[in-house]
């Protein structure tokens, strides 16, 4: 069972081929604003490094958000086109849950990803990664209120603070993420879409 994992949702581009608990290849680079140039090439490099033909992939997993709108669309477009061509459905992976799975703590965890202005994408999970607070686009004040209520272990993409709470930088543990998602529901390649959690500004303005 070979899984192709694609994450272009944040500053980091991660492409990996995983077979059970083995990493066949992993390419992970910080490259702001260059996802559109390198993501597809990295998929090719990952396949070549592992000596695997494009058609031998059994599972395609893609981080479909929340995160950078354009970034997410790059990964999702690659995944759905790839899935269509080899006739495999796609597993959508949450960027927020990926952080919690990678942190792997025996306590309540909050995943936090900065959005525009001083807003965040946020979610809270129990130790089995069930959502206690569902994924949402939230203001800084809302996030702090959630911290006050749950006192969670906070994972994020950078070491930082929010109010009096510490955000712990978390690197993605792709093997753990892939193994968590391996038996989760797959989505038809026509239907898989980015999980934006936020309307385009033009529609916000109309409300």
């Amino acid at each position: 069972m070979i899984s192709l994992f694609i994450d272009t949702s944040l500053v980091n581009v991660s492409i990996s081929l995983i077979k059970d608990n083995d990493v066949l290849s992993l390419i992970s680079e910080d490259m702001p604003n260059m996802h559109s140039i390198y993501a597809t090439k990295f998929v090719k490099d990952a396949l070549d490094n592992a000596g695997i033909d494009a058609n031998q992939v059994d599972n395609i997993m893609v981080v479909n958000g929340p995160g950078s709108f354009t970034g997410v669309r790059i990964g999702v477009t690659i995944a759905k086109t790839y899935g269509f061509l080899i006739n495999k459905y796609i597993t959508p992976v949450s960027s927020l849950k990926s952080l919690a799975i990678s942190a792997h703590k025996d306590e309540i965890m909050m995943s936090l990803i900065p959005a525009n202005k001083s807003n965040y994408y946020v979610s809270i999970y129990d130790k089995d990664y069930n959502e206690i607070v569902e994924e949402q686009f939230a203001s800084r004040d809302t996030v702090i209120q959630l911290c006050d209520k749950y006192n969670p272990y906070i994972v994020g993409v950078d070491t930082s603070v929010i109010g009096k709470y510490k955000i712990n930088k978390q690197k993605l543990d792709i093997v753990r993420i892939v193994n968590y998602y391996i038996d989760k529901e797959k989505v038809n390649y026509y239907k898989i879409l980015p999980n934006y959690l936020k309307l385009p500004q033009a529609l916000e303005d109309k409300k």
Binding site: S36, A39, T40, T70, R73, T77, I78, T81, Y82, L85
Partner: peptide, 19 residues
Amino acid sequence: LIGSLMIGVQCAKTISLVT
């Protein structure tokens, strides 16, 4: 439009990659 172009370009690159 950059965001629009990108969808077509990523799709084309993926077809080239797979085939």
